[in-house]
């Protein structure tokens, strides 16, 4: 081992300091929420939020799980749209990516332009909204309204295309010799080789659906159809929540909704992601780096 020279030591010290401070800043706000949710509500009213729980109490969680119907319903909606949305998005985008990667497909560049143009020019929110509400009646079909709007992404198609065009043609050719058609080749030969990309894009897609609240805000009319994040949004913005919760029958709480209740709801809605992402982040990191190079 070489002896570390002065400049390297200085650089190391600065580096460690900067990274530690920034990394703490990234997780402290989340710690703040967690400890707030485990605090006693009265203590927060007096002392405000802090990084450690004040007068540890599970009252807020007890309150949520006393009437779990709403949060369970929101979970059901979110899981359903996440699973369906991710699956359909993977199917549509991987097929499109495969077709655009085939060199024997003469209309490749024309279709690429057809997709690409929509990424540089769009009609804007209003015409799209009118189309969805007045002509497709999204407000009466809550699940369609939550799944359809973000089903297609040309960016994902490009990632599939560039990954698939690196698979040697010989593989597809030999299968063709054996009489397999293009779809069979795609399903049996290409897709199995694309497992890492499928995992990466699938996770990005799942994260998007899980965190989506915008489409619900635009189209969801009934509280029973709210996905998790939008449900959380209404709880956090107390004024909304106040009117909504007291309006829905059967749920009676003495004070609506307390500070700790909001925080506990945030923890319940975000928990799964925070617990899962450290284990799957390598797939995300792969996706982030592909995206930057080939986007």
């Amino acid at each position: 081992m070489k002896r570390k020279s002065g400049d390297v030591i200085v650089f190391n010290v600065i580096g460690y300091l900067v990274i530690i401070v920034l990394a703490l800043l990234c997780i402290l706000p989340v710690v703040l929420i967690l400890s707030g949710s485990l605090s006693d509500n009265a203590a927060i009213m007096i002392h405000g939020y802090s990084l450690l729980p004040q007068e540890f109490s599970l009252e807020a969680y007890r309150m949520i799980f006393k009437h779990p119907e709403e949060i369970a319903g929101a979970y059901r909606v979110t899981i359903l749209i996440t699973v369906c949305g991710t699956f359909l998005q993977l199917a549509i985008c991987s097929m499109a990516g495969y077709v655009l990667s085939r060199r024997n497909f003469a209309y490749r560049s024309r279709f690429s332009f057809y997709f690409f143009f929509t990424t540089i020019f769009s009609a804007g929110l209003v015409p799209w909204y009118i189309l969805c509400v007045q002509y497709f009646h999204f407000k009466e079909h809550p699940y369609l309204a939550l799944v359809l709007p973000s089903l297609f992404s040309y960016f994902y198609v490009i990632i599939f295309r560039s990954f698939m065009s690196e698979i040697p043609d010989a593989l597809a050719e030999s299968a063709k010799m054996d009489g397999a058609n293009e779809f069979v080749i795609f399903l049996r030969i290409i897709l199995p080789l694309c497992k890492p990309v499928l995992a990466t894009i699938g996770l990005f897609s799942a994260l998007h659906y899980w965190n989506d609240w915008y489409n619900a805000m635009l189209f969801s009319t009934k509280r029973a159809n709210y996905p998790l994040q939008y449900y959380l949004y209404t709880v956090i913005n107390a004024a909304n929540a106040l009117s909504n919760i007291s309006a829905s029958a059967g749920i009676i709480m003495d004070s609506l909704p307390t500070e700790t209740y909001k925080l506990a709801m945030t923890v319940v809605a975000t928990g799964p992601i925070v617990l899962v992402y450290p284990f799957v982040q390598k797939y995300f990191i792969k996706g982030m780096t592909i995206g930057a190079v080939k986007g």
Binding site: I20, Q229, K262, V274, Y277, Q281
Partner: peptide, 24 residues
Amino acid sequence: VSQTMLLLPYFISWVVAGAIVYNL
């Protein structure tokens, strides 16, 4: 470890970030 910590905010929705703003 630090990379995992730095990535945490990316996985959190803006709704939750709004709650964080309120807390702070």
